[in-house]
Design a protein around this nucleic acid. Structure first.
Lengths: 223, 223
DNA sequence: AGCTCCGCAATGCTGCCGCAACCCTTGTGG
DNA sequence: CCACAAGGGTTGCGGCAGCATTGCGGAGCT
């Protein structure tokens, strides 16, 4: 899972990134609305966390901007402006939830889950493929109910493939599922993950196979 | 076990928190109904203790509010309003118990246990793993019927792991099981608990093992 | 006063993962 | 049928982040 955090307090942003990371969430961070517009062009994010007071304007103005482009990515507004009137204002503009600062990370996680549980994201809850069941929220994989320990990055790759099983997933999509913009990679790290994943899945008898589509991407097939 | 205390007398709240803490209960405290609604969204609590006279309204009004969201978290009303008529009122609104102030902490504990013993919490009653049996209500662990004394925090960690045995438990989840949000920790306290738990469990011959999933969390396995 | 609990921090260790070297596969043109 | 190139697969290596362990000291309890 990957989210965009639009927030101008650097410390809060870093703490949040770290905390969300513990839940297996990849976070991109920007302080400016203008950047946010660019970043959301490619439908990369499962959700957006939005501050209201930002250096280049009122955060809320971002919501209609995004909706106008036809995207219904869930938005959760994070703000110190937490009067009832302000909450209504935020929700009416099309955000999906509104959370007053300060808040508990646990609460944010719960709201994220709630917001993602709504259709059409419902499919994300559990993914099955072959003998595997993947729970992306709890970061767990089981084969025939036996837990399978996977390193974090391999797990993210697997989840991205399984979410679109039997369909080709672009290389770029996979890379986006595993890395945020600050951790650019320059080698065949992704290929290496795939290679190790294949071995582990075979050993565990998962009955799935990962195929390469030359020059395009990868594809996970049930056997 | 973790509960939410909704109570406006700070002194009483602190005393209760401390007393419950000795029984291994992690307590979050709020003085406002509005906060309580937010906090309960995450289904984090095993029970709720509710005062009636609160600065922002009658505590009882919280009960239907919570039930409407589909939660059946047990609620125990704590109040000085202890006339028979008032008791009936509280129970009819959907609380699970009604306790007049002043009361003994021991009585509260007994009522908590009673309320948690009812279905659908029944599954929580005893957890077995390896040769261990854990009773989260009485905070006891036995190995082959021999009692095993564990420090409070280690016990909370163990219970959280055992409740989801054979499944990975996120670091963040474990931290939430042991600490309330006023006691943030900054070091590897959790790791230390795990380390000491491992030694104690091995010495006691519990036949369980705690595995680390790097970058994700921990997992308790039977051997 | 003596005990345990427990957060903290220093230390050493493990294994993830990016990297790059090398090999294999596939496709194209002659 | 072969030569060549380009993309993919595999694997060992090394850096380093995350984990395990443990001693210390403060706090709380008896």
């Amino acid at each position: 899972m990957r989210i965009l955090l639009i927030e101008d307090e650097r410390e809060l942003a870093e703490a949040l990134s770290a905390a969300l990371g513990k839940h297996g969430i990849v976070t991109d961070h920007t302080m400016h609305l203008a950047d946010a517009v660019e970043l959301t062009r490619q439908n990369l994010y499962d959700a957006i966390l939005l501050d209201r007071r930002l250096p280049d304007g009122e955060g809320l103005s971002f919501i209609p901007q995004l909706r106008r482009t036809g995207k219904d990515t869930p938005i959760i507004v994070l703000t110190a402006l937490n009067e009832p009137k302000e909450r209504v204002q935020g929700l009416d503009l099309g955000s999906d939830d509104y959370l007053g600062k300060p808040f508990l990370v646990e609460e944010l996680m719960a709201r994220l889950r709630a917001v993602l549980r709504r259709p059409p994201n419902l499919a994300e809850l559990k993914i099955t493929a072959g003998r595997m069941v993947i729970d992306p929220l709890h970061l767990s994989v089981t084969v025939d109910d036996a837990p399978l320990d996977l390193p974090r990055r391999e797990l993210l790759v697997l989840a991205a493939l399984a979410k679109r099983k039997e369909k080709t997933v672009l290389r770029a999509t996979l890379e986006a599922a595993v890395y945020n913009y600050e951790e650019e990679i320059q080698s065949n790290a992704l290929d290496a993950h795939i290679s190790r994943l294949r071995r582990r899945l075979a050993e565990a008898g998962a009955e799935v196979s990962i195929h390469n589509i030359r020059g395009v991407g990868y594809l996970l097939k049930e056997e």
